[in-house]
Design a protein around this nucleic acid. Structure first.
Lengths: 234, 234
DNA sequence: ATCGGATAGATCGTACATTATTTGTGGCAT
DNA sequence: ATGCCACAAATAATGTACGATCTATCCGAT
């Protein structure tokens, strides 16, 4: 087994429903069980997921189309390599899209929406950073409340895809205390802007929020690299 | 054969190279030979392209990941349906991305780049609308000169994908004279802004350019619809 | 050090089994 | 006679198996 082969060992529970291989591989990429740049051999994956090679190949093709997997002719598939440039590219796009989605949300927001946002934010604050995983879920939910309302499904889906990628990356690194505090403050600011119908203000906060999130991830990636490439957290 | 089945008849030349089925189907979608919402039966496609079902299935999965094809479980694949909302969604994203890409281009542009842009524009004007197909190619090339220089491959690739989709749609409708004149003017304005290092001006022109293009396509779609759905141009 | 064969693995093809959906049919009750 | 439900056949997607072929990579012989 070479340096970065597939590392799935547990033969996951057999699947019955069609199309599930795709979801399982996708989930394993997003959750980090399949590391960036890990080689994806169809035979190994088929064995790991308890299917034949054909569904695996189709799943990989779909993931390729979505950008989660890169394939070279006759050289097989790999999980997409994630470096600083990759994160920066995605963040730059989000800095454009998220403020636009937010601006529109402000124009249609209801009291009930704001109440939901505040409830989500309260959940986050109640958690108080005790569980990074759960925190990520709640944070995603907070923003989802805003973006899922938008009529532009393409933009919302794009956000979601980027979000999942970033979540996969973030999971591999710790979130600094200062960043976590900033997240809470920015959320509060955002709610305040929305409440007073300040679309531009909300958009500006979101832009700052996304950019800060990206900068933090890139910094953490740099730290990890300087500490030497490692397979597992020390 | 039901109302909207696959309409490819000519068995295209046999393919030898791997991965070509994908490109051929993609090209047939983009070129309009496979109409929006056309059903894509793997057996038919396999016959049409002279291969077996397996490569076709994988190609469809990849196209699904890229958004050119939609699939329902156990119900097969269709070319993505294209309506006004679809175009509007894509255009809204491009209105955000293209100005950003342009802004950066202005900051790194060289005299040689400007010369290339002017040459491309001269080609377009020399053509003088005599060939709509060729015009589209040249127009794409013009913008590609700007966007391909950008370091953000994600954003540039996204533009390219959207561009191909829009090209597929545009091909089905005529471009009005007034729109064609506007395109030329906007290109000239854009070059002027770039030449004087006016990043904001260039971004504004591009935003207007994209929005105008989108509006025109949507209008043409509306016209076509009011004239009654038709399979072939009268 | 370079060449050439051996091997691993990807790609593609064929054939067939399984499963889901659609469609058609017939009986039954109203 | 009309409408509705159950069941069966047809259609097509999905999954399995296996073999052929091609490419890249590794390794040993020159």
């Amino acid at each position: 087994m070479s340096e970065n082969d597939v590392i799935l060992t547990a033969p996951e529970p057999a699947l019955d429903q069609p199309g599930k291989v795709y979801e399982m591989i996708r989930e394993d990429i997003i959750s980090g069980r399949l590391e960036p740049s890990a080689r994806l051999k169809v035979a190994d994956l088929a064995a790991a997921y308890g299917t034949s090679t054909n569904p695996v190949r189709e799943a990989l093709q779909q993931l390729r189309g979505e950008g989660f997997v890169v394939m070279e002719a006759n050289r097989g598939a790999r999980v997409v390599a994630i470096d600083e440039a990759f994160v920066r590219d995605i963040i730059e796009i989000e800095v454009l899209i998220e403020p636009a989605l937010t601006r529109w949300f402000v124009s249609i927001v209801t009291d009930a929406d704001i109440a939901e946002l505040e409830a989500a934010q309260a959940d986050i604050e109640a958690l108080n950073f005790s569980d990074a995983q759960r925190h990520g879920q709640l944070d995603t939910r907070f923003h989802q409340l805003i973006y899922d309302r938008h009529y532009n499904r393409h933009a919302a889906d794009l956000w979601w895809k980027h979000r999942e990628i970033l979540r996969a990356i973030s999971r591999r690194f710790p979130t600094s205390l200062s960043r976590r505090v900033a997240v809470l403050n920015e959320h509060r600011e955002l709610i305040a802007c929305i409440r007073r119908q300040d679309a531009e203000g909300a958009a500006a906060v979101v832009a700052r929020h996304v950019e800060g999130s990206g900068r933090h991830i890139i910094e953490q990636m740099g730290v990890a690299k300087r500490n030497g490439p490692r397979k597992r957290p020390a």
